[in-house]
Design a binder for these strands. Structure first.
Lengths: 213, 213
DNA sequence: CTATAATTTCAGAAAATCCTGAAAATTCAA
DNA sequence: TTGAATTTTCAGGATTTTCTGAAATTATAG
């Protein structure tokens, strides 16, 4: 008796369907998107059978979907007293979800490219055209490396700090200027840092440790 | 006479092949990824026939790929003197590429979700479970809306400002604290702003700060 | 250990997406 | 205009991805 989502209110249906569609624009498939959406709006953890029932998917499909979601760290497995089955729920705090998403996405979409670029930049350019290509790759490498490690840093901030940072919006820029005007007294210099990298082609984002007091 | 990428040096091949693979993890397909990679490392603009030749794709496939890349604003169309054919090249500055990417991605991946959420939040919850679902949606909505408009702001900064911002990494946090200590004198307050939203309706995560150092 | 409940694996059917060649449409020089 | 050069469209074959049911595996209660 597989109900076609008929145990769900229209509101939930809409949400779940949307995540199914969206899933594909993302890197995950419809099934996974829907499972996630269902868990996200559910008032309590669900087990695989319940999910299969709600969404009218085969049990095995749900199993795979949950595996995938776990690998993204978007759901956590837990148990109910007196019940052998595995239950699933997403992290409570949306900010944790957000961070997990960014982190995992970086790991899968960005890291491999960084490695490839790193390797390519070590190779010996065979032709003029290779030399040009390598220069382009270097530019790409530097940008990715920079934004990537920036994410790293920012990600370590607490949700609250993160939130207030964002609420400032472009005020950050002003702050940045203020920073310039007061940095002397406080002992962390931006100007120096900013200079450092843009000149020499130091592939590998220089010394690393030094720059974050 | 379709060469199997044999007019490309191993270095370029590697790069192009990688972007092909990666493309799928992204939302674009292999072909589009490769076309982009080829243009990116090319020392001069290329026309569709040249691309088809280099990559051994059908002419029509290249045509579609270029359309797609244009819709992402990742390549620009241009003409050579005395040549009717259309030539293509990516933006020179990697930062422009980066921004185009983020912007377009937001438009396609985020905006639709925001609309859906906005609509859903207006609806009348039919059940208790709906009420809960709506609350979860609200949390999601707020987070996305916040980070999205933050991107908006940051995106408007010049590449240079953006770069130095990133080079600061988590130093931003320090700056933020300094900002607190001097904001009175300077007339832009973070505390006030930050407070505004997080209080009145943050059912989501209790007072926050505690669990994240 | 055995029996049963629960989960995972996996071959291949079903569905979705990509890619091509041929035909249609567009552009522009003459 | 005309017609050659160039680009676009699109039906359908080729490929890839998703999804299922059946069988295999794992876990646990008794």
């Amino acid at each position: 008796m597989k109900g076609n989502m008929n145990n769900l209110t229209p509101l939930a249906q809409k949400f779940i369907l949307h995540f199914g569609e969206m899933g594909s624009r993302w890197g995950i498939n419809r099934t996974v998107g829907q499972i996630y959406a269902l868990l996200y709006v559910s008032a309590r953890p669900l087990n695989a059978d319940e999910i299969a029932e709600h969404l009218a998917f085969s049990r095995s499909n749900v199993s795979m979907g949950l595996k995938e979601l776990q690998s993204w760290r978007l759901v956590k497995l837990l148990h109910q007293p007196n019940d052998r089955r595995e239950y699933f729920e997403p992290p409570k705090d949306v900010w944790d979800i957000f961070k997990a998403l960014l982190e995992e996405r970086r790991r899968r979409e960005v890291e491999p490219t960084l490695s490839m670029l790193r390797e390519s930049l070590l190779e010996n350019p065979a032709t003029d055209s290779d030399r040009h290509a390598q220069q382009r790759m270097r530019e790409m490498y530097e940008l990715i490396e920079l934004s990537s490690s920036w994410f790293d840093d920012v990600q370590r901030l607490s949700p609250d700090t993160l939130a207030s940072l964002m609420k400032m919006g472009s005020t950050v820029k002003k702050l940045l200027d203020v920073g310039d005007s007061v940095r002397g007294k406080l002992g962390f210099g931006r100007a120096a840092e900013a200079q450092a990298q843009s000149q020499d082609d130091d592939a590998g984002r220089g010394s690393g440790g030094g720059d974050h007091p």
